[in-house]
Amino acid sequence: MATVKFFGLLRIQTGIAEAKAEGKTLKEVLYDIQRQYPSMTVKELKKKVIYVNGKDINQLKFFRTKINPNDEITIMSPVSGG
């Protein structure tokens, strides 16, 4: 199972900092998260900034990115300001 870490408002709003989820692709992992935590829908999760092993999915294959059991997925609400 991949480890999924949540950051930003998503984490504050849901109170969930970390989860385990499975799937062969990122899309499947997102569906597994939705199954475990219905408040986090795939539609909403797809709007977040997502990294797989520290790499932005924009540099990978987006939601078709292959996921291995030891992968770490980071899902983060957009942030700015400083």
């Binding site: 504050i12 932005d56 983060m76 609400s77 942030v79 300001g81 400083g82």
Partner: peptide
């Protein structure tokens, strides 16, 4: 606005730290 209406009030500028790390 997602930045001025949500992120900054709820997390402050500190909400950027992990994004900066990644």
């Amino acid at each position: 606005h997602p930045l001025t209406g949500e992120q900054l009030p709820k997390l402050g500028t500190a909400g950027l730290i992990s994004k900066m790390h990644f």
